[in-house]
């Protein structure tokens, strides 16, 4: 039995492969897109079936707050993208600072969201509350979808923020460098996805009137 002590396969699954990680992240983003996709199908069908009710209900939402949050997310998307540029140029300090801006944007977004939701809940529009249960046909669906979709989106904001916090920690530890920044890239991709979904949620809920 030959003992080829030097033999190892060139294409090992245990090699570091940045391209593979990125591809894995993209594939995961596709599943996220379709997860929300299912909800968009539901939204479309119920909007077709309850046209007027959806229009009426959308007046309950606050366009100013929605627009503000849109801007917040777009800015945070840019800072994440810039932090990748920074780490590629070897400027870890700047990269961390930009990621902190993103993290701050996430917090601002969630705070605005909190005020929006509590206003609705105050009006009794949350599923199970009194006003909600007596809403006319179709309007209940609108608010159910509103809470379900923005709630799921907010959950993604939280996950994204945790991911970015991990990136900050690892960059600070020196584990992410100009040569090895896959995690920053992937966290960035995830954050952009969160932004991407909001880009559709915003007009569909706030701007349809």
């Amino acid at each position: 039995m030959e003992h080829s002590s030097g033999f190892s396969l060139p294409n090992s699954g245990h090699n570091r492969d940045a391209e593979a990680s990125k591809m894995g992240m993209w594939l995961f983003l596709f599943t996220e897109l379709l997860l929300f996709g299912g909800l968009f199908v539901v939204y479309m069908v119920y909007r077709l079936l309850n046209h007027e009710a959806f229009l009426l209900s959308s007046f309950e939402l606050n366009v100013t707050m929605g627009t503000f949050n849109t801007v917040v997310l777009l800015v945070s998307s840019m800072t994440v993208a810039m932090s990748i540029t920074a780490i590629q140029k070897g400027n870890a300090a700047l990269s961390i600072r930009l990621l902190f801006v993103t993290l701050g944007a996430a917090v601002v977004f969630m705070v605005v969201k909190y005020f929006e939701w509590s206003a609705k809940i105050h009006h009794g529009l949350f599923p199970g509350q009194l006003v909600f249960d007596n809403l006319p046909k179709g309007e209940g669906l609108f608010f159910f979808l509103y809470f379900f979709m923005t709630g799921l989106h907010a959950l993604h904001i939280i996950i994204g923020a945790v991911l970015i916090a991990v990136v900050i920690y690892r960059t600070r530890k020196g584990l992410i460098t100009a040569e090895k920044y896959t995690l920053t890239e992937n966290a960035g991709l995830y954050w952009h996805l969160v932004d991407l979904i909001w880009i559709y949620l915003f007009p569909l809920f706030y701007l349809i009137h």
């Binding site: 929300f36 249960d133 046909k137 209940g140 379900f148």
Partner: peptide, 27 residues
């Protein structure tokens, strides 16, 4: 993912009892 979200809707519906797929509220 599509069935994932659909099944979550069933759970949400059982939890809140609002009848998402119920014609009486437009579903």
């Amino acid at each position: 993912p599509i069935i994932g979200i659909t099944l979550l809707m069933i759970v949400a519906e059982r939890f809140f009892g609002i009848g998402l797929f119920d014609p009486s509220i437009g579903g």
